[in-house]
């Protein structure tokens, strides 16, 4: 076990370095955008005088490197600064939005992961049947369509034509959990459709790969029913690649949902990031991007640890 602990620590250390590099890239990318925050805030109504006053007030007259180091100094102490526009703390601005995004991602993952894996096992079992073909075609079609298009199709059929679900996911305080699930069902379903194919196909491929192994043949020869062969013998050896794909898709559910949030007007972190970039509100952009980067780093780490733990050969190296 100590090997795993060492690996986790090493990876976390590397992760921190990655985050530092990301923060530098983001800061200078925002700097490179045309116009600055003072112009963005004042918009068409900007005059030279008001822009200058606002720049002074926001401390934009310091050189970029000084502003970056100021921010970094705060960030290492856990203070991500204040929004340049509203003056509110970045933590406050982001917390609720990030929780909303996590909720939607969890909702979608709770449906998608079991669904995709069970479906993957089933189609592996019924390889080359009509069911296999149909499942493949449907999931590949849904992954190949852009999310916003899937969202519109779902809205058209499940909301406008039938009225079963609300078309927009506006949340309000005091909603019951049931209402919340109903309000967010369509965006969650859109995400499920987007991520299912990848996980399902990987499960299918990993299992079919194993089905040619001699030990599976042995299991079959001794008269085991096919579902048992797959669940008891094939699946345990197939976990490593499946876990990797699941982790990648979970990360996508958190970081890649901007379009879904826009289509369903869901108040998540993606929408916040887009707004902040439009206004050049650097502290918010930085914090959102770091959350996204950290999500990828942690989920990749979890995937690696997961595949080690499911593989006895890696768990007990010689």
């Amino acid at each position: 076990m100590s090997d795993i602990f060492k690996l986790v620590m090493k990876r976390l250390g590397l992760g921190l370095v990655t985050l530092l590099v990301v923060s530098i890239l983001i800061f200078f990318a925002v700097e490179l955008l045309p116009g600055d925050i003072a112009q963005a805030v004042l918009g068409q109504g900007a005059t030279e005088e008001t822009v200058a006053t606002l720049r002074e007030r926001m401390g934009l007259n310091d050189p970029a490197i000084v502003r970056y180091l100021d921010w970094l100094g705060g960030a290492v102490r856990g203070d991500f600064g204040v929004s340049l526009i509203s003056g509110g703390s970045v933590g406050d601005a982001i917390t609720q939005r990030f929780l909303n995004t996590l909720f939607l991602a969890t909702y979608a993952a709770v449906i998608a992961v079991p669904f995709a894996i069970v479906l993957g096992v089933l189609v592996a079992l019924m390889r080359d049947t009509l069911f296999d073909r149909a499942a493949n075609i449907l999931t590949l079609t849904s992954i190949s369509s852009p999310e916003f298009f899937l969202g519109y199709v779902l809205i058209l059929y499940l909301s406008v034509k039938t009225g079963w679900f609300p078309a927009i996911s506006s949340l309000s305080a005091g909603m019951s959990f049931g209402e919340l699930l109903e309000r967010t069902f369509l965006p969650a379903l859109t995400l499920v459709l987007v991520v299912t194919a990848h996980m399902m196909r990987m499960t299918r491929a990993a299992i079919i790969n194993l089905l040619a192994s001699p030990y599976i043949e042995m299991a079959r020869l001794k008269g085991m029913p096919p579902w048992k062969v797959i669940v008891k013998h094939a699946l345990p050896n197939a976990w490593a690649p499946i876990i990797n794909v699941v982790a990648l898709n979970l990360a996508y559910l958190i970081t890649g949902v901007v379009l879904v949030e826009v289509v369903f007007v869901y108040p998540g972190i993606g929408q916040l990031l887009v707004d902040a970039v439009a206004k050049r509100d650097f502290p918010i952009v930085q914090a959102c991007c770091l959350i996204f980067a950290a999500t990828f780093i942690l989920l990749n780490l979890a995937a690696d640890v997961g595949s080690i733990l499911t593989n006895p050969r890696l768990r007990h190296p010689k």
Partner: peptide, 21 residues
């Protein structure tokens, strides 16, 4: 009164058509 920001034209339109706003 509830004031909702609905920047996406399609979201705005379906919200109105379905009676959500």
């Amino acid at each position: 009164v509830e004031i909702l920001t609905l920047n996406d034209p399609n979201a705005r339109q379906t919200a109105l058509v379905t009676g959500d706003v």
